[in-house]
Amino acid sequence: MANTLIEIQNISKSYRRDSMQIPVLRDISLTVPDGEFLGLMGPSGSGKTTLLNLIAGIDKPNKGKIVVGGMDVASLNETALAKWRARHVGFIFQFYNLIPVLTAYENVELPLLLTKLSKDQRKKHVETALQVVGLADRMQHYPKQLSGGQEQRVAIARAIATDPTLLVADEPTGDLDKQSAEEILTLLERLNKEFKKTIVMVTHDPRAAEKAHTVRHLDKGELQ
């Protein structure tokens, strides 16, 4: 049986908008084993992205505990959390979020600048990551010179360049055509199977959810 990578215990999260307190997640508990490919589905506003953000350590719960890879994420301060994210989490966004003035190579290298790797070591990591996503021949291209699918593949290469334990993807196919979306899902599946990456993916797309081992539904901030 696989070890538990993510353990969420009774977390709640609400946001303050002006004088209103808006609850987003209510008393959520969830366990994700190492090597899992988890799909999170639910209608808009159900709290999927908020839950993903909490798992990834880019937001903190108001209540409850989140342990990822043995680390109580909510207890870390901002600096420690930034370091932890750089080392353990790879992010894939719906709109790729590549830096437009950097080439594909430089975008992938970006998180590696935070490590102590030498230039040659960084080069090796970047080339490997771009080979895995099938863009070894597009290294010197700028984002605007790539298609949406290719941009997302560069974003995935950036997410895996530091060899993180966990990949989180927020609607990774939401901005892609059917064929590109299929390629991205196949790539994520491969990262999960071949490279043993634990993936948590938020999606609206039932075809994307089919690739996941487990799918959990959220509705009005509660896990179904």
């Binding site: 901002e78 600096t79 750089a86 979020n97 830096i99 970006l110 998180p111 935070l114």
Partner: peptide, 16 residues
């Protein structure tokens, strides 16, 4: 603003 958020997400600290 969004790009800085992405950089933070990637692990860039406030100092960086």
């Amino acid at each position: 603003t969004k790009e800085y958020a992405v950089l933070k997400t990637l692990g860039f600290s406030g100092g960086r």
